[in-house]
Design a protein around this nucleic acid. Sequence first.
DNA 1: GACTCGACGTATCGAGTCGATACATCGTGA
DNA 2: TCACGATGTATCGACTCGATACGTCGAGTC
Lengths: 220, 220
Amino acid sequence: MLETAILGLLNESPLHGYELRKRLNLLLGSFRAFSYGTLYPALKALEARGLIETADPAPTATTGRSGARSATGRPSSGGKAPLATGRRGRIVYQLTAEGKEHLQTVLSSSGPAAWEDESFDVRFALFAQTDAETRLRILEGRRTRLTERLEAVRESAARTRERLDEYTLELQRHGLEQVEREVRWLDGLITTERDRVRGRERDHTAGASDAPAQRSKERG
Amino acid sequence: MLETAILGLLNESPLHGYELRKRLNLLLGSFRAFSYGTLYPALKALEARGLIETADPAPTATTGRSGARSATGRPSSGGKAPLATGRRGRIVYQLTAEGKEHLQTVLSSSGPAAWEDESFDVRFALFAQTDAETRLRILEGRRTRLTERLEAVRESAARTRERLDEYTLELQRHGLEQVEREVRWLDGLITTERDRVRGRERDHTAGASDAPAQRSKERG
DNA sequence: GACTCGACGTATCGAGTCGATACATCGTGA
DNA sequence: TCACGATGTATCGACTCGATACGTCGAGTC
């Protein structure tokens, strides 16, 4: 799933590892952070599979043909631009054609692999690059998954009650409440997405395209 | 932290691995499950450190002096008792004196190691075995930790806004809301604990002991 | 009885991940 | 000038998970 996140971010713009990690952790709401020990091996694996490649943004020379680590190819022009200007021997990665293709395949899939705990956040963060039908299917799958879990926990709690102390009970109650709240959150998103799909079906030639629809101004 | 959880559970009653795992996962609200690949090595390490030992619940013989795997020492008496009766060569673990001592040391500690993400749930689940002052300190530490994180996320979000799409924003908003809710949950618990400590200070010889105080009947 | 099946029970392996750390360059300010 | 912190790439050891293997037991089924 890290791979999907990397591919999704690189599809927006080429990036180097350090920046990639920052955006990755920002993307996932700053919880669930990935470390370098995870990121760099993943980048190498992706490169070995031909899904990403090292870019060379420097206009000078470019003598080393495919060798990474373009040493200090700094153009000295950009005085202050905080990102995007090369500061030292960065290794900037970008998607290959094959990588783009693979990303599209992954983004249009909506199996269990999309709505499990580990992957749902990543897939959701890439919803802007996902078509509406797939978004809806992932949200519904996630909802079903959480509901099942809720059911299982409640059942096992009912079988085991009495034996637990006050604090354990409170911990369980709080956990259940968090999941219930997430289900309600999903409900809201599903409704929005359904309206979106329906609206597109109705006047499917009018102005609005599909990805960035209007923000619902609810939530007071 | 798995070790603390094991010690805490074994302090209530001797258990074997399978049952231990079930209770462990029940204890933590059925989220954050530990697998056998984690549990068994931990048990071995604990045994090697002399904090736990294998018990022999069978009344017959007990010839094998300290050998684990007491083969089929089943007493044949218990007709239906669902737990606690030995069914086969289980390996039942119990605390040693040293283990109990170590557990008490851990339970009375309240450093950062107690309120970080990985460990807080375990420490909270063992609150019934923790004294009130330590409970309070852990809850407050946790609250501070979450507040700090909230602050950091908000700040970095403020620095990076505009560039994010609708869905990423929504994911962030939802994540923040979850944490805010947890802070409010902690507030309630802290209030309860403070009342508890104060009540005990006031009439600190009257009936109620310290651990299982009355349930506050709020939450409608 | 002989059969299967699912719960119970111990145990290990490979793959993935984290946290800490090393090393190097650059800008900034005392 | 020199320390310090941000930027940047990279690796190592320790830990954890999910899957799986292997085995026992009780209950049903014909």
